[in-house]
Design a protein around this nucleic acid. Structure first.
Lengths: 233, 233
DNA sequence: ATTTCCGTGGAAATATAATTCCGCTAATAT
DNA sequence: ATATTAGCGGAATTATATTTCCACGGAAAT
């Protein structure tokens, strides 16, 4: 009795269906109660199948989380370094590039806020989530870098931009309220502070230069020389 | 046979010693592996005593976490609303008050960063941690409010200040590196943007006003009218 | 001294989540 | 039709964390 060859047509379909149900149930639960808090039994119950079946499809937690991760990544469509340049296609003016950057980031964070929050919450418990967030951060950084690529910013200024554009900061800023336009304008304003042309440096760039250099440049004694100077002149 | 009266002098001391050992071991483990990840058995092992003894001293997880919380609170000595005013005693100039605020916050966040991070990480799992962080946030908010109390900031600006002074934002800014003085100067600069006197509003206040109002005030078309205008005039 | 009291901790009991076993059934090939 | 294969899932098993029990021994009172 040698092994028969199996093609599995109809069967394969129901099997694949089960797999999709599992993934769907898992994502649902991850959204509702968090990633780390979701057990295999929970998933099975939600999907309306046996726990053993979940194990058949996904022998390890890793494989399940990864399968979900792929789906989620696709759904949230985060910025990736490869497409960063294309996002600013034909946009030359500094302000317009900044505006574009903020638009892109705000809409990304907004449409992904729940899942980014869930991933952030458990990234120290689940390796995949940490990698996931790492990839997101890389994409955002690439976007920022592309937005200011012809400005030759000093590294600390660039790092500040990165810091001000990350997800935790966006989350904190949500408390301000307001609609999409207000939020974006506000963030764009904050970022716009950082570095204009080289000769008349942007406000923050100037400020940073003052702060980093050992001695105040002009108005010693004042705590915000550049800003103060810009505002009263 | 009626109950004897017990005074417990020597005994009370060793018992109290055990209690302190438990608390010490718990804080150690919370620092090392996080709050939620630390079990009663872990604590017992670290303290070199039996698990049952831990239960005798702290019947519930809550009681143990609270005892540790009290210690931690004392050690980190966070800003509290009651002492907020005293922190600015005799400091009148706007810039000096801001500088004081940043000094206070940065040094607080720096000396408490590990534990604030641990508390933040698990605040969604452990009620006490959430309350703890809530109290910290209240203290910080009181400090900020006190720092700008005579400026009559529009609420959105104030909210922005709160957002920019919270722990997640501070954490993100750590990536910039630099020493204490640089960091503080940078943050002070960022905050200083927000709201000067009413008549010549601070840059950010102006920006916000522009963003919030429906139509651009002066230089329509430009994305950062206030900053642009301030910088080039 | 001796009786009473109580903190201690090893061990057992309990709870819950993770994983595997195995018989059932439906799909497939001949 | 019938033998064969493979997905399925209830139930059993294992693993781990939580909680309780109780005998022991040293401290406190008389």
């Amino acid at each position: 009795m040698d092994r028969r060859s199996y093609r599995m047509t109809r069967r394969a379909r129901t099997q694949d269906d089960t797999r999709q149900r599992i993934i769907h149930a898992t994502m649902q639960l991850h959204d509702e109660q968090g990633v780390a808090a979701t057990s295999f039994v929970d998933v099975a119950k939600r999907a309306g199948i046996g726990a053993a079946t979940v194990y058949r499809h996904f022998p390890t937690v890793d494989s399940l989380v990864m399968a979900c991760g792929a789906h989620v990544w696709k759904e949230m469509d985060p910025p990736v370094p490869a497409r960063a340049a294309a996002m600013f296609e034909g946009i030359d003016k500094r302000e317009d590039r900044l505006r574009r950057l903020v638009e892109e980031l705000d809409s990304f964070y907004r449409r992904s806020s729940l899942r980014l929050a869930r991933a952030s919450a458990d990234r120290h418990l689940v390796r995949q989530l940490d990698e996931f967030m790492g990839a997101v951060e890389q994409g955002v950084e690439a976007l920022v870098r592309e937005a200011v690529k012809d400005q030759a910013l000093p590294n600390p200024v660039f790092q500040l931009l990165i810091a001000l554009t990350d997800f935790p900061v966006w989350t904190s800023m949500q408390r301000i309220g307001g609609d999409e336009r207000e939020r974006q304008g506000l963030l764009a304003g904050l970022l716009g502070i950082g570095g204009d042309e080289r000769e008349r440096q942007g406000l923050l760039a100037g400020l940073l230069g003052w702060v980093v250099s050992d001695e105040p440049k002009q108005s010693r004694g004042s705590l915000q020389p550049v800003i103060g100077q810009a505002a009263q002149r």
